[in-house]
Amino acid sequence: MTSETQAEDVPRTDETVDPEAPSIDRLDEEGEIAADYLEELLDIADLDGDIEIDVENGRAAVEIVAESGGRSLRRLVGADGEVLDALQELTRLAVQTKTGERSRLMLDIAGHRAERRAALVAEAEEVITQVRATGQPVALEPMNPFERKVVHDAVAAAGLVSDSEGVEPSRYVVVKPASD
């Protein structure tokens, strides 16, 4: 694993605790600020949604969940999640404005990231099988930082090695055999 991978999207699983991770209180506070910011936006835009706050893997995790099967939240996800990413970016800035610290908060809307994560893990598992069978590295298609992190985590959990190569927005993950 290169140092660049470390700096960019550190693979982290539930068992490893990041010594740099903010305290639970700080992350709760981040979640509260984010929820206020998003709730008022939903109000103004007349969109129905409930907001759930959690802490996952040393980050605040905020999700806007649909009330009673409302479909209106889909437009806040957008094609390939581009609206979701934009809202996450603005929400992180809103938190930073209040706390004075950079936030790595994760936003999800109507389960979009959870679905994407499941699909990526399945894809990573296929590639892991292939790399184990052939002993040759495999490059995946370009992905955003969230997607690459999901793949890095799955690869690390399987005991193989992965790197990110290329330049945004064409940055992609390469899965390699375990080094010996």
Partner: peptide, 14 residues
């Protein structure tokens, strides 16, 4: 121009 772009993306979605 990242933040301005994010604002445009969200406003166009709304």
């Amino acid at each position: 121009g990242r933040t301005a772009r994010a604002l445009r993306t969200v406003m166009s979605a709304l």
